Structure formats: structure tokens, C-alpha cells
Amino acid sequence: MFSKIVTSALFAGFCAGLIAALLQLVFVQPVLLHAELYEGGDLVHFGASVVSAHPDLPGLDPVRDGLSLLFSALIYVGYALILVAAMAMAADRSVTINARTGIIWGIAGFIAFHFAPALSLPPEVPGVAAADVATRQIWWWSTVAATAVALALIAFGRNWVFWGVAAVLLLAPHLIGAPHPDEFSGPVPPELASLFATRALGIGFASWVLLGLFAGHFWQRESDAA
């Protein structure tokens, strides 16, 4: 069982992470590089002169972009280990795991790790005001854990008690409130911040769907080979 989990997670995580990295290079990195021009003072938002929304951005950097690909692959391998371990526990309860059902698992992973935290703490572009990093990380991980448990209770709970607890867990982090700065400030235009958040969430959704599909596929293949 352990070898099946590790093998499925490695293949699924690497494939999904590579695709996620390529999508980020195309859609997210230009927004980040643009925001860094404001953060470093090369561009000024609402200054005395009009600033182009399409500045010249640095081109591909083999070292930077190669490390981004590697980092993304490692992150998604970690996600895959969590996802496949959950699939293994479900398989022990006679739940069917394949590529098609894996898509549903991927969507659930996206909700837990991206969508739910972003409801109160959206992805932040460099240069915007933000609360303390440690406080945000504690809230983020707490929200991920509460959402993941809630989704499991919704999927596998047998009565309204389980579903009621799930509803409380889904709402609790947002009722408590995410940490936000006392004042809004920063040199980055809000248009860039919103574009970054939407693209980050969109790519996260696509990547998790693919991760679930790959995880389900490799799990089924390993099961058939056993």
C-alpha cells in the first residue's frame, strides 16, 4: 500500500506540477514581474504622468524559471501525497478510485487549499499591504484543515449531524476572520492585484483537476498491476 501511494503521488504530482509551472510562467509570472516594477519604484501608480499598462518585462531566465519548474513539481508532489493518501483511505472503504472520480477529488483539493482560504485571504501580489506572515500562515493552514475535514464529512457522513458539523467547519474560519493589515497601502495598482488573484485561482483550479485525474489514473493502474 505504501509503495502504491508513493508511486502514484510521484507520477501524478510531477505531471501536474510541470503543467502548473508552465501555466504560471505564461499567465502569472508576467503579472508578478509587472508588480515588482511598482514595488521597486521603477513605475509609479497614479503619478504625475500616465504609465503604460504594458511595460517591457524581463524575458526568460533559465535559472529562475528552471527553479520555478522544480519548485512547482515538488509542491504538487506534496499535494499528491496528501491526495493519494486520502484516496487510499477511501479505497479501503470500497470507494471507486479512477481517473474520472479523481477529478472530483481534485476539485475538492482545490476548494480546500485554494478557494476556501481565498474567500477571506486572497492571493497577494508583491507590493501590497499585508498582515503578519506567521499569523496569515496559521489562519491559512487552519482554514485548509477545517475545509478538508468538512468536505470529508459531507462526502462520507451518514446523517445530518455530520453535515451540520461540516457546515460549522466551513464557516468558522471566515466568521473568525482572516488577518488583514490595519491600513491599506502599497504602490501596486489594484488592477494588477485582482488580475494576479484571479489567474492564481484559475491556474490552481486547472492544476488540481489535473492532479486528481492523474492521481486517480495512476492509482487505478497500480491497483490493476498488483
Rank of each mutant, 00 (worst) to 15 (best):
I5F: 01
I5A: 12
V6G: 04
T7L: 09
T7E: 10
T7F: 10
S8T: 09
S8W: 03
A9N: 02
A9D: 04
L10A: 08
A12F: 03
G13R: 00
G13V: 04
G13C: 10
C15S: 12
L18S: 14
L18K: 00
A20C: 14
A21W: 02
A21N: 02
L23K: 03
L23P: 02
Q24P: 02
V26T: 13
V26W: 12
F27W: 11
V28G: 05
P30H: 12
V31I: 11
V31F: 06
L32E: 14
L33R: 11
L33F: 06
E36S: 08
E36Q: 13
E36V: 11
E39G: 10
E39K: 09
G40L: 08
G41T: 02
D42V: 07
L43W: 15
L43S: 07
V44H: 14
H45I: 06
H45C: 06
V51H: 07
V51F: 11
V51R: 05
A53V: 03
P55F: 12
D56C: 01
D56N: 10
L57K: 05
L57H: 12
L57R: 01
L57I: 02
P58M: 12
P58I: 12
G59K: 01
G59R: 05
L60W: 15
D61Q: 09
P62F: 13
P62G: 06
D65H: 04
D65M: 08
L67T: 10
S68L: 10
S68G: 13
F71L: 03
F71R: 03
S72K: 00
A73M: 01
A73I: 00
L74G: 10
L74I: 15
L74M: 14
I75K: 01
I75T: 05
Y76V: 01
V77E: 00
V77D: 02
A80K: 00
L81V: 05
I82H: 06
L83V: 05
V84F: 02
V84G: 08
A85E: 13
A85N: 06
M89R: 11
M89N: 07
D92E: 15
R93G: 12
S94A: 15
S94M: 11
V95P: 03
V95N: 04
T96A: 15
I97T: 14
A99Q: 07
R100F: 15
R100K: 08
T101D: 12
I103W: 12
I103A: 08
I104C: 09
I104K: 08
I107M: 10
I107E: 07
F110W: 14
F110A: 07
A112G: 13
H114V: 01
P117I: 01
P117N: 04
P117Y: 13
A118M: 03
